[in-house]
């Protein structure tokens, strides 16, 4: 009987460990990486300075100046 209980407890312990690992693991990103851009901005001291900006993936909309090519 004790062996049965030990098996049951071990099974649930194993399941819990697997669950924690799966939950904490970061999903691999499928989004393309964005290339940093050099840009001129006004700094906190009011002077212009050249900086590097990192675009972020996952935008809700994208600017454009003309219609995209027909699908």
């Amino acid at each position: 009987m004790r062996r049965v209980w030990a098996t049951v407890v071990a099974f649930w312990a194993m399941l819990a460990i697997v669950g924690v690992i799966a939950w904490s693991r970061q999903a691999p990103s499928t989004l393309p990486s964005a290339t940093p851009t050099v840009m001129v901005v006004k700094g906190k001291n009011g002077k212009q300075q050249v900086v590097v900006v990192q675009p972020t993936a996952g935008a809700h909309a994208t600017t454009q100046t003309s219609p995209p090519p027909p699908a």
């Binding site: 675009p55 996952g58 935008a59 994208t62 600017t63």
Partner: peptide
């Protein structure tokens, strides 16, 4: 979040 298309590189995001 609004991506600004990079006019110098088609398909790229500027910021």
């Amino acid at each position: 979040r609004v991506a600004i298309a990079d006019p110098r590189t088609p398909g790229a995001t500027l910021a």
